[in-house]
Structures are given as structure tokens and as C-alpha cells.
Write a protein that binds this DNA or RNA. Structure first.
Lengths: 86, 86
DNA sequence: ATAAATATTTACCGTACAGGATTATGGAGA
DNA sequence: TCTCCATAATCCTGTACGGTAAATATTTAT
């Protein structure tokens, strides 16, 4: 176990809202969907999609999950192998 | 491609806030942390942890990601293999 | 290249609710 | 009992998000 200069231990970087935003946008475009399309099938407003793709920190969790699902982006949450903590 | 009775095609189930809540709670307990501990290291209030573990739909994305990170729960977002869409 | 058609972004308003702090309640265990 | 943990209720500040319209940017056609 390595203690980094910033005080953190060597754990994987946190998933950021920025990363999610970029992923949503690139995936959406690869599906040739407009933001409006995505908003429609996700049951949200366009504003939400715009904010999400911009990496807004305060987006609502469930709506984000819905959007990811509509884009067929699989979400895997992998718990620690019983031992490592914060 | 299979059309299921509920009208959906055969895509994986969406990740739900309920699942995340359960995962957070079980992982936290396995680390022997209290909700207060988790709130403290995550920079949130206890209320947020309680709500998150209850599966509240409207939790703020970034805070959820922080909590997952503090619990060393890895988040993997896997984009579709270029083709499948909604 | 230029124009036309689309797509995206931003600003504003209004409603509704998130989440922090605090306090109270209840349950499990020493 | 006393203590720790979890939950719930209340107050309050800030803001998410939908709708809309206007301003840009990007793509497509001629």
C-alpha cells in the first residue's frame, strides 16, 4: 500500500461527472441521436442532457442511470475484495 | 434480438438506485463504518447517507460517486459495442 | 463557398425538492 | 442504565429541472 503525496492511498481514481458527461455525449453521437431524442426516450428535458454532458455535479442519480441505460451503457459496481477501506 | 413481454428488448437491466443503496450499506457495514463515519469522510451530511442507502432517486450524482469511492467501490461504465441503441 | 436546415447552448422563470443542521425517538448491546 | 447506531421530523437555504425562446454552432445541400 502506497501513501501518495496528497494523502490518499493507492486506490483507483474516482469516477467523475466529467467522465460520465463525455461518455454520454460520445455514446449518444455514435448512436446518431440528438440531445432531444435522448431526452425524449429518457423522460427528461433537454436541459438535463445538456447539463449531464457538461459534467454537472448535481444531476439526479436516477435520471443519470436512466440515460445510461437508454444508451446501453452498462454500469458495473465492483465492491472491494473485503479488506480495503477508506 | 428478443422482445420481452414488457416491451423492452433484451438489454441488461438498468442499474437502480435501490441496488446502489443496498450495495453502499452492505459495503459500509463490511468496513465496520457507521453512517456518520461515511458521511464525514465523504464530506456529506448523515441525511445524505441515509437517503442514499434507502435508494432515494434524486441523490446528487457527484456525492454518490464520492461515497462509492470512499468505500472503494469501483465504478465501471461499459459503452455498447457500437451498434446497439435504444 | 454560401445558404439553409439542424443541433447545441444559454438565459430566464417558477415550482418543487435536496441536503445540512439539529432534535427527538427507538433499538441493540455492554 | 448508559452508550452507540439508525431513522425520522422540522426548518431553511440553495438549486435542479422543465419549458421556452433566443443566440450559436454545426451539419448538409446546392
Amino acid at each position: 500500500m502506497i501513501i501518495l503525496p496528497n494523502g490518499n492511498e493507492n486506490m483507483k481514481r474516482p469516477c467523475t461527472t466529467q467522465q460520465i458527461g463525455v461518455l454520454v455525449r460520445t455514446t449518444r453521437k455514435s448512436q446518431r441521436m440528438t440531445q432531444q431524442d435522448l431526452a425524449l426516450v429518457s423522460g427528461t428535458g433537454i436541459r438535463f442532457i445538456v447539463d449531464l454532458e457538461k459534467g454537472k455535479a448535481t444531476c439526479e442519480l436516477a435520471k443519470v442511470l436512466t440515460v445510461l441505460h437508454m444508451l446501453a451503457i452498462e454500469v458495473q459496481l465492483i465492491p472491494p475484495k473485503t479488506g480495503d477501506a477508506s
